Amino acid sequence: MHSIPSPFKMPQVLLPLGLLAAALLAAMTLATWNLERPHPALIAGQHATHSNPAAARPQTQIKPLSCQPLSDMPGKVVTTLLVDFPPGAHTPAHRHPGSVTAFVVKGQVRSQMQGSPAQTYSAGETWYEAKGELHSFAENPSSTEPAQLLTVFVSDENCGPLVIPEPG
């Protein structure tokens, strides 16, 4: 006898899929995004410009795609970004002020959340970061191939800042 999934378990599956669908829709509307004003996500993307003094590694580049208010969730916005990881690129420890879903568009990204082992994600795979959770690092493990993430943030108004660098 087959059991029917509980409706209480469905949001665990539907939320990431819904966020991914929102990200893809936002990416398709990139041509209409107003890039004349500075985007807070670029300012907040400080982890992309920090360097690790112990090892000179390439840094990530962040490209804002969209930031839209969520009409059914007053005070919240959904922001999508492309994060490019050149070969060997690394981001140090940081947190986010909202929930994040990351989708690997191409290449591989190795990522570690506090309290979990590092994992390598390939194109087509995703991971989730809860609001305020410590993201120990993310890196492109390849020394020859670039990688790219599509990230979807659900956070408070104003579209940023989206990255809180971890001290030290």
Score class of each variant (00 low, 15 high):
H90G: 02
L14T: 15
Q148Y: 11
A44I: 02
L150D: 02
V13N: 13
Q46R: 14
W33P: 07
Q12G: 02
Q46I: 14
Q12F: 14
P146N: 08
S116Q: 11
T79L: 06
Q108S: 15
S122L: 10
Q61G: 14
V104W: 02
E157K: 12
S71K: 10
G132Y: 07
L81D: 01
A89M: 06
A130H: 05
G18Q: 03
L134R: 11
E125D: 05
D156A: 03
M10S: 12
V154K: 03
N158I: 01
H135T: 12
R57V: 09
E145R: 11
S66L: 03
C67D: 15
V78G: 13
M1Q: 05
L149R: 10
F8Y: 12
E125F: 07
T144K: 10
L150E: 04
L162Q: 05
L35Q: 11
A102E: 05
A89G: 04
V83Y: 00
L19Y: 09
L15E: 11
E166M: 09
W127I: 00
G115P: 03
A138E: 12
S143I: 01
A102H: 09
S6V: 09
S71F: 08
Y128Q: 10
I62Y: 08
P97W: 01
F153G: 01
A23G: 12
P40I: 02
P74K: 08
G107D: 03
V100M: 00
E133I: 08
E157N: 07
G75V: 00
L19M: 14
H135Y: 12
P167G: 11
P86N: 12
Y128W: 08
H94R: 09
S66V: 04
R95Y: 04
L14R: 14
Q148A: 12
V83F: 01
P141T: 07
T79N: 07
L42A: 14
T120H: 02
S143K: 11
L82C: 06
L150F: 04
K9G: 08
L19Q: 12
F153S: 01
